[in-house]
Amino acid sequence: MAEKETTLGTLPKRDGNSGGLAALIKKSASDKMGPEDHVLVWPNLVYIELISMLFATALLLFLSLISPAPLEELASSDTTPNPTKAPWYFLGLQELLVYFDPWLAGVVLPSLIIVGLVLLPYIDPNPKGKGYYTFSERKFAVLGFCFGLALWYILIVIGVWFRGLDWSWYWPWENWHHHKPITGGLVDLEVIIGKTLGMSDTPLVTLGRYGVTIANLITWALFLGYYAIGFSVPFLTMRKFYNTLGFVRYNLMMFMFLSMLGVPLKIFLRLLANVKYVLVTPWFKI
């Protein structure tokens, strides 16, 4: 602290007590570090910031020149442009809308992403890897995060460059102005199960509007089974992993992780098995 005193000493004497305040308050973080590997922020850090700001401005001007902001025709509520695309950063969500109902793709999944991000520091017990790039010491965390990020970006890439009329899939070399033929109707998982196992679709019990059939119960079993297995397998096999996390953290993390994996799982169920809904109830469908 003595070293700091001398520089403060050379300041012109000020009547206000702000000069002394720095000495009184608890050491702020920057004072804690030893003086030897220090550089003054002025000019070093400030110059770097100035240069990066200049570069950013140049980039913005360049972008503005090569592709000025578009302005389409006046808004009219009766004709919907085809295709209607949200801004690029929401195209990940809009692409999800092809596979999930709006309440899931538009509200629940984004909220899970946000809540997941908020919980991240509280469910990551790994003390290593603080303040430096590392993959070797934080494999699971980095892999999980990069997978989520990659999913988000790939859905945006598809939404921006691969979706054309009626939001159907268009390869870049195809003719983007001719409507794609109507693809076959999608079928619910419980209908597939019902058909293959030849079960009657008379409901076992009806709760109000909800006629529960055997196939429907099977889909419930599959859906809850997915989460049950996801929770229990790592618990049984990797007990050390569980112990470092603790009960609450483990369950929060696993729920987020399984839901994240559930998204591509449903997408592939849709792409490969033509499944429309995995789980159907009159109130919500997944």
Partner: peptide, 21 residues
């Protein structure tokens, strides 16, 4: 045919394709 996400309805309004719930 809906231009937003490819939902397809027949003349009576039933859903024959796409994500319409």
């Amino acid at each position: 045919r809906c231009p937003c996400h490819g939902s397809i309805y027949d003349v009576t309004g039933n859903v024959v394709g796409g994500p319409a719930p």
